[in-house]
């Protein structure tokens, strides 16, 4: 974990209220893994007060990329920051995805399930998995409508087979991403699959039920309001089946889906 001043290389609009930011941050880039996050101070003043957590979207040499949607005052300020400006970053934080890469079995399939902005950390994971080229990478992207589908080309460029679904049918299959997942699993040997997912909680909950029923290992990346981001303030709990709380920032943000008390 480091606290550093990074330089904005670019910050551009890529979808409705969605931005892609590139930061020059060699020391963080060296250490950060897919699923981990950085805690960003959006302004130099105390308005807004708290940092904002963003998961690693891509890594490119000494540069890290994040993908974010403007949802409040912090991301609004971030969206107006210009290239060349300095941004205070704390990271890498949390535990990332733990991809199972040990077997060279070509029957194995890795399924990434991204709902809306959930594509953000999964591109980083696809980037890492594509380097190994050991297994088929299948990506499901789902959103409410066409304009909210992000990163389709990025996934394809990484060699993934991409399947799109929208709730209004404006792109890809009409319906929920979990219906697409069920369909995909019916065509595969689900015993040999692993799922990695990020998206709204309702989606992760439904997906976790599917994975559990079919006994498919499933890792999910969670979101929660955070203050410190390092495990000191105990402000971002998620209830686990053992009946206690774990912290999204320190114990997660990636958890085994079966561990969570949905």
């Amino acid at each position: 974990m480091k606290q550093i001043k990074t330089k904005i290389i670019s910050n551009r609009l890529i979808g409705p209220m969605c931005y892609h930011m590139v930061l020059e941050a060699p020391s963080v880039a060296r250490a950060i893994k897919p699923g981990q996050f950085i805690h960003v101070r959006c302004s130099d003043s105390f308005e807004p007060l708290l940092r904002r957590p963003f998961s690693l979207h891509r890594k490119n040499g000494g540069r890290i990329e994040i993908l974010y949607k403007v949802v409040g005052s912090g991301t609004e300020i971030l969206s107006r920051r210009q290239s060349g400006e300095a941004v205070d970053v704390l990271g890498p934080l949390g535990n990332g995805f733990a991809p199972k890469l040990s077997t060279l079995n070509s029957q194995l399939s890795t399924i990434l399930v991204a709902g809306g902005m959930g594509v953000a950390p999964l591109v980083a994971l696809a980037q890492e998995l594509s380097k190994k080229k050991t297994q088929k990478l299948r990506v499901l992207i789902g959103a409410c409508s066409k304009s909210r589908i992000l990163c389709e080309e990025e996934f394809r460029a990484l060699g993934a087979e991409v399947s799109i679904s929208t709730e209004d049918g404006s792109k890809g299959a009409k319906g929920l991403i979990t219906d697409r997942l069920n369909f995909l699993l019916s065509t595969l040997n689900s015993q040999l699959s692993t799922i990695y997912a990020c998206g709204p909680n309702a989606m992760l909950k439904a997906l976790s039920r599917i994975a559990n029923a079919k006994r498919i290992p499933c890792q999910v990346s969670l979101e929660e309001r955070m203050a410190c981001g390092v495990g000191a303030c105990l402000g971002c709990p998620v209830k686990v089946k053992a009946g206690e709380y774990k912290m999204v920032c320190k114990d997660g943000p990636v958890f085994d889906a079966e561990e969570i008390a949905w």
Partner: peptide, 30 residues
């Protein structure tokens, strides 16, 4: 962090919210 005699599970989420020039926390002495 405050310790108590018996373990305390703490309060349900959300435990944090930002407010003008401040923040609210409701950790519940976890």
């Amino acid at each position: 962090k405050t310790i108590t005699l018996k373990p305390r599970i703490g309060n349900p989420p959300p435990r944090i919210v930002e407010t003008p020039s401040g923040m609210l926390n409701s950790i519940g002495l976890e």
